[in-house]
Nucleic acid binder design. Sequence first.
DNA 1: CTGTTAGCGCGTTCAC
DNA 2: GTGAACGCGCTAACAG
Lengths: 339, 339
Amino acid sequence: MPKTVDEISRETGFSVTTVRLVINGQSEKYRISRQTRQIIEDYVALYGYSLNHAARSLKLNRSDTVGFVVPDLSNAFFAHLMAALETLCHARNLLLLTVASHEDPVLENRAVASLLARGVDGLVIAPCQAEIQPQLIKSRGKTSIVMIDRDFASGLFPTVVSDNFSSGLVMTRGMLRKSDGKTFPFLCGRAESPSIRDRIRGFSEACQEVEEGGEERILLETDDSIEAGSRMMQRLIDRAGGMPPHAFMCSSLLILAGALQQIKAQIGRIDPAILISTFDDHTMLDLLPNPVFSIRQNVKALTSKIFEYLTRPRAEDKKAACASSVIATELVCRNLESR
Amino acid sequence: MPKTVDEISRETGFSVTTVRLVINGQSEKYRISRQTRQIIEDYVALYGYSLNHAARSLKLNRSDTVGFVVPDLSNAFFAHLMAALETLCHARNLLLLTVASHEDPVLENRAVASLLARGVDGLVIAPCQAEIQPQLIKSRGKTSIVMIDRDFASGLFPTVVSDNFSSGLVMTRGMLRKSDGKTFPFLCGRAESPSIRDRIRGFSEACQEVEEGGEERILLETDDSIEAGSRMMQRLIDRAGGMPPHAFMCSSLLILAGALQQIKAQIGRIDPAILISTFDDHTMLDLLPNPVFSIRQNVKALTSKIFEYLTRPRAEDKKAACASSVIATELVCRNLESR
DNA sequence: CTGTTAGCGCGTTCAC
DNA sequence: GTGAACGCGCTAACAG
């Protein structure tokens, strides 16, 4: 089993300093004798050396880790974000510690507290609540903290989000063009989330360009789930006397899945002429024969901005603290040719 | 900003022991005087207390963390597994540290080394290689290690996998029943993986029940990706003179996505009569009008077994080390009624 | 009821 | 070229 510096020094007879110099490759610099070095290197080759990060962290007050608190990794977008963050961390010799909050403020707070107690050097949070725990604010001086995906506008932390307003605007316009100006419903899960609110604003604005009013086209649910999607679609079908909508938009892939399930359950099949749109993109959308719009977030741009904030010196406090970046998205179209 | 025990003791004038007893809620037990307790509690309420896990780990030689090395969190199955593991960890006051290896042995080794150096109390690995790094073997005494999802049969670590052989057998039989005994191709990504090999064995055995030979029905690719799925489907289409298969089976959702994309690209549409089957289940499969078989792994059973191995005292070494659990799966059927 | 102390393994500074 | 010693913050054993 691997040894500590102390054990190695005791068992080879050299002092910890000498051993450390050899292990850290500084034997040249401090001109350790060739044979001393050889003995120690052989010993390490045989037994291995295990660096104790706990001791290192305690001494250096630095853990070489970055925390990532994420609502839900079943959400493909967050899974990709995590992968990208991990790659960036890796390049800087940092370990990314990812913890899921499952959209639960209590779990989120616990995750944050846990990561801070572990002395993460940076903390990336995709929050599920507007509330900021006092501990977070107090940690600002020591740890870089970046909020992402949902801008609750605390003004306390740098924030990186996608441009949800423009996304909603552009996608809705695209839909309207394909539906000859006929408006359509927007099924929204987790309606209180800032990103969803922005998407709704975009949707409304685009709708107003072709028609006045129409707030009744927006359906709301508090959670973002398949069930919420089903419920909203059921409401639509009931309202239309048993008919599915000719077109509709969903705030997330889960809502879309629920909506489609419900159409299938009620109508028996999904008319391939129904115009569909959804936020977030997924390969599985390829499976639909329908015309589909979706919004793909720019993960690379998001993560590089996150890292910029994370590694930025926190000296320029007042102004920099509130820095907020909005990243452009991409509209993806499927099966639109035949229309 | 939050204080350490030492600071609190110094600034309140009480000793570290007294402070600690109050903070840890043991003031009753050790009959700390009411006013002493009040003073300390007030102080903590005002400034907060920040436990330094690095120091704690160093002292206790225990980090209250469990490491999880996973090939790819874009894979919905692993994302669910992570969520379930996190819940179990949470119940035991452990923090789950998840790191992705991206199916790269080098990254996997680095992740393992990194987590071990951080003193994780347990380590769950979904390996992407048969090779076992020496460090892992050496750590066995100190840290519980469990291998999951892919059984490379090292015989060195307890292993938890789904019953891929039976899954392949049962799903293939189901398909054959629906196709009136007509056999069909099996598109396999990551063919060298033990779990895929088991799936292939199940497939072959079921095929032999209706027909001799037929190894040529199995298509292989080394990676598990959409592209691999497309390539294999293209081979099938070419082989059949431009026709898509009447039925086929895929080793994963990614392969399925690629296969369907390719049919769409070549044929223009996906005939809803095509009989489809795939390993791993996903809500998005609801979107297909086709009859679909899929295999859903039992995440709850998997994770509880993993935890059993993780927390089992490693005393019963020789035999227990090789312990291996195979968990039953569930066959999910969609849109089969009309046939 | 409260206080003192040793030491976990590492990094650093200074001394020979 | 090499060694000794201190302290990071916490825990636990022991001492009043």
